[in-house]
Design a protein around this nucleic acid. Sequence first.
DNA 1: TGAACATATGAATATTTGTTCATATGTTTA
DNA 2: TAAACATATGAACAAATATTCATATGTTCA
Lengths: 123, 123
Amino acid sequence: MKRNIAEEHAESCEMIHHHCDVVEQVMGEMPQDEDLYDLADFFKVFADTTRIKILYVLLKQEMCVCDIAQTLEMTQSAISHQLRILKQMDLVKNRRDGKTIYYSLADNHIVSILSQGMEHINE
Amino acid sequence: MKRNIAEEHAESCEMIHHHCDVVEQVMGEMPQDEDLYDLADFFKVFADTTRIKILYVLLKQEMCVCDIAQTLEMTQSAISHQLRILKQMDLVKNRRDGKTIYYSLADNHIVSILSQGMEHINE
DNA sequence: TGAACATATGAATATTTGTTCATATGTTTA
DNA sequence: TAAACATATGAACAAATATTCATATGTTCA
């Protein structure tokens, strides 16, 4: 759905300010749309305090759902829902021991991602 | 609003599975609530494809609002709203040159945050 | 000064998302 | 096998959020 020239004039600046080759270069660096969505989804996981708390709790050791819930003073259901998201994103893994299911971090990136975020906000 | 013991039993496991000192240690590592909110807000910025695209565009060079909008094929208003959020979080800065306002990255962390995210999703 | 341009912003709308509640699934033990 | 326990999950609801539309602010130039 290409707009006509008159409309384009009305909605944006007269012409692109920078050289076209620069724009092309910039767009060349841009990841594929699919990767951009995955990237946004990845950061979305860290964009909630409950999930961050869970990750911090698991930083030291594995823990079962019930203990996480008690530690964070939240319902089992809320924690379980969030663990599901963390697992879907491959940030945590779990193992069953009888009735209990223990969760732990699945990836070492997590530590550095969190601490880099912390670095930034402490400036 | 402390619940009574009977209710607590109903809602969670009989007693905490791990040693209390471990839980205390885990909670000792936990950042302050205020920092947790700031951290979540920080990652929230990267949790949207439009903002990620803007950051990628600015990775190479500064650019005015209008050119960003044209490059990403979005409205000037949408870009302006998102630039406001990026600026509030100190991820971009701007300078005025006549009518035009040029935006650029405010921080070098951004590159490494983005590439660490990319690393993770490409596994 | 007025017209054209570049950007910012408030309100409205649609979509996404986190928690709660009720209940289902799966395991152990008496 | 029945009861108790640990976890998972679907539906409902409330809160947060991204975009659009209309319009305001601020700059330049004739």
